[in-house]
Design a protein around this nucleic acid. Structure first.
Lengths: 118, 118
DNA sequence: CGTCTGTACAAGTATTCTCTTGTACAAGAG
DNA sequence: CTCTTGTACAAGAGAATACTTGTACAGACG
């Protein structure tokens, strides 16, 4: 089977943040967060045309936020979590306290999951 | 300490992300991250006109990212860290693993900061 | 008071964004 | 091969954005 991997993981902070600064695009990411979806399936969730969604997908893909896999004529998309790294960096830079809060959240989550104590 | 929530912190995720999706504006936030700066002092750091920076400041302020304090004719600005909360939420939503990575980052940051390393 | 300094607001322009309709192209079905 | 389906690309309209220059206004200071 064809395995077309895209090496384009070099998403700049600017491209990622601009891609995220649109409600439609954030919604697309939510849709493909846990499962692959074909472009048409994504488009069907919006009151926009298929072409408009195709363009949003293109923006997200160029920012590195979407992985693309071809299956026949369909193109399946899924979230590339790693691409959110610039956002994490930004948060770390501007809001050190957020790290502490997230650490707390992590520990709570771990406690919930496996009852682990730091 | 007063835990009063400011009503002006009703910044929407959209406004915050759009405000952050510009390199000039991110640079402004870096400048006022640790100390207050007057609008003119901020503008002096850029090859743009004072008016252009004033507009960027306005965008940041409306997104809740900047606190404004008046001192005579000057207006002093500083970063409102809380306004980054929507970014944290976004990260938490889209990237559960980020929590674990941030925990690691926190621990590294604390080590770096304290530098009481044998 | 008049004048300077610091800053925001106004109007105009060039660029960029987001959407539309129209079209091309690739792959499977008959 | 022809038809249908799934998707991207192209061109253009309208809005939003990011600048510019010009101006207004508030406060400090002689």
């Amino acid at each position: 089977m064809p395995r077309s991997e895209q090496p384009a993981s070099a998403s700049t902070p600017d491209a990622v943040l601009k891609a995220l600064a649109d409600p439609h695009r954030r919604q697309i990411l939510r849709l493909v967060q846990h499962r692959e979806l074909a472009a048409g399936q994504i488009a069907a969730q919006f009151p926009l045309t298929q072409q408009a969604i195709s363009l949003h997908i293109s923006v997200l893909r160029k920012a590195g936020l979407l992985a693309e896999r071809r299956d026949g004529t369909r193109r399946l998309y899924s979230l590339r979590h790693e691409a959110l790294d610039p956002v994490r960096s930004l948060l770390a830079e501007f809001w050190p306290d957020a790290l502490a809060r997230l650490k707390t959240a992590v520990e709570r989550a771990h406690q919930t999951k496996e009852t682990r104590q730091p």
